[in-house]
Amino acid sequence: MDHGLTGFAAIILAGGQAARLGGVDKQSIEIAGRTLLEFALDAVIDASEVVVVGHHVPTDRPVTFVREEPRFGGPAAGLLIGHDSLLRRFPTIAVLAVDMPHLTSATVRRLHDAAVGHEGAVLVDADGRRQLAMVVETERLAAVQPDLEGRHGLAMRDLLAPLDLAEVPAIAREARDIDTWTDLRDAASPPEDDPTAG
Rank of each mutant, 00 (worst) to 15 (best):
V98R: 02
T196G: 10
V51I: 13
H56D: 14
F72S: 01
M100K: 08
V136P: 09
I45W: 14
T35Q: 06
H83Y: 13
G198C: 01
S48C: 06
Q145W: 10
M1H: 07
V66Y: 02
L36N: 03
A14F: 10
L36A: 00
T64C: 10
L37K: 04
A19Y: 07
L103D: 03
A114E: 05
V136A: 03
P101Y: 09
A175G: 15
M156Q: 11
V50P: 02
R67D: 13
I45G: 07
E149V: 01
A47F: 06
E174Y: 01
R151A: 04
R34L: 05
A40P: 10
R61H: 13
L80V: 15
D60I: 10
A97P: 00
L37Q: 01
G22F: 15
D179H: 14
F8M: 15
A133Q: 09
G150H: 12
R34K: 06
A142T: 14
T35N: 07
V98Q: 09
R67K: 14
H102M: 08
G153M: 14
A166H: 08
A187Q: 00
D127V: 14
G23F: 12
P169T: 04
S48F: 00
I11H: 08
V50G: 04
A77F: 00
I29S: 02
E38K: 05
L184D: 06
D113Q: 15
R34M: 04
R110G: 10
P75I: 03
L184T: 06
E30S: 12
D158N: 13
D2P: 09
E69T: 12
V63Q: 00
V108G: 00
A143H: 13
E68W: 01
D113S: 14
R109Q: 09
L165S: 08
E192V: 12
A188N: 02
L37S: 02
P191S: 14
G4Y: 05
A40M: 06
A175D: 15
G16D: 11
Q145E: 15
M134Q: 03
